[in-house]
Design a protein around this nucleic acid. Structure first.
Lengths: 245, 245
DNA sequence: CAGTGGTCTAGACCACAGT
DNA sequence: CTGTGGTCTAGACCACTGT
């Protein structure tokens, strides 16, 4: 009974466990599976779909890690989450906004090669004084200033000299260059806006701003980007789903 | 060569994959494995330890999910992270501070049964007007006010009437009662402090405060707790490690 | 007790990266 | 080409939950 209509396509290049996870996820978002509903046990599901149990487990585990399902030994697997927004992923704000369908614009305030100061050098694990690109951008959504972003990228990682960041996100540029971001470390806090910051963000000096500091690493473990961003807290909030493993 | 001295104890109740992951993690934290180092391939590691490859993979995957290792097909597995702080886990601030060894104190400002308002009811998925515990606490560290926390717990979930929250954390109380938190959804932003809030946090009206709103679910998928917390941004920052899967 | 997820094995074939 | 991780199978036994 608790068997959603899942079908797998064995000639597809998409992994079987991923196909299953995708369809279960859609069923949850569409409300076919409501929070509290129990799904069939792993062995039965695997049998029905003609999959091995480890493959079925992998599909379920993906959704458990996303916080959509919970498993309890001896009991079963249940749907937890209401159809909330998607999980926080390793993407830039620009990508987020584009998918949200809102009218996002970017203004490049500064884009030049500079010598890394002590902080940027330590975060990027390069020598102090070495060449890094500095990129200052102002992001607006529907005409309202939303974020003021400063990023540093080691010159050895990528050449940003001829990139137009009014139309291309930083992460998008990395992907296009074959650089795959895998891990990011973030620190989020708040403070008062300085005069210049407030002017750019369309507020007044002393207004509260949400601050985010981030260092991203690629799949070779190299530090690729270090950024300090300011967000207008009336327009932006950071959402996360934490899962206890 | 890139084989850290890992040993497994097959008579231990601790899962083999967990034993391996623990020892690799310790090797990274102790600097025996530095960022950029490559570890041996999965098949070799599994063979050396007398484990099957899936078990070895599970161990490595655990550390990949923590953001400590990155894998690249055709290349190998490398250490990414500097020995930064532990990953954000599903714990309360109180637990965090206790482990940090700082002098944390809690003052209970209010602890009573109330009728759920619209927001609390919707977050906790209970009927508006139903009985929920309301708990207001002020957290200080080394004598400085750090956080002002308001939490709601459905009366049906737990009876908080005789709990002394000056000595017990909310999550600690849940664990003791056999309630296991599994998933939490958080929203973080910032705003200006109100007069009363500022007074309690030792600041002035209009000071910026970091805000966190959280709903936690247990392993049965029940909403167990809804909280709105205020933090002093000069004393507290929220750290996360994101991993692209 | 029966039913569930948690762990583990010993293989297999494939896709991709670098030489 | 070789070496690596990515996926998948078809079983097995154990630990925990609820009746």
């Amino acid at each position: 009974m608790p068997l959603p209509d899942v079908v797998v396509n064995r000639s597809s290049p998409v992994p079987l466990y991923f196909q299953v996870a995708e369809q279960l996820e859609r069923a949850i978002f569409e409300g076919k599976l409501a929070p509290g509903d129990r799904i069939a046990n792993e062995v039965a599901l695997a049998g029905d779909l003609g999959l091995s149990r480890p493959t079925m487990r992998q599909a379920i585990q993906l959704l458990v890690d996303k916080g959509m399902l919970v498993r309890k030994r001896g009991v079963g697997t249940q749907v937890v989450h209401p159809p909330i927004k998607r999980t926080v992923e390793l993407t830039s704000l620009y990508d987020d906004l584009k998918r949200g369908g809102r009218q996002a614009e970017t203004q490049v305030l500064d884009q030049q090669l500079v010598e890394a100061d002590e902080v940027a050098a330590s975060r990027l694990k390069v020598a102090e004084g070495s060449s890094v690109w500095k990129l200052d951008r102002l992001r607006t959504v529907d005409g309202e200033p939303l974020a003021l972003m400063r990023n540093f990228v080691p010159a050895a990682i990528s050449d940003l000299s001829h990139v137009d960041f009014t139309t291309t996100g930083l992460y998008e540029h990395f992907r296009a260059g074959g650089i795959h971001l895998r891990v990011a470390h973030q620190t989020i806090s708040a403070r008062r806006a300085e005069t210049a910051e407030a002017r750019l963000l369309g507020g007044r000096k002393g207004d509260p701003v949400l601050t985010m500091e981030r260092t991203s690493f690629d799949d070779s473990g190299r530090a690729v980007e270090y950024g300090t961003h300011l967000y207008r807290p009336d327009l932006y909030a950071y959402e996360t789903t934490l899962v206890d493993r």
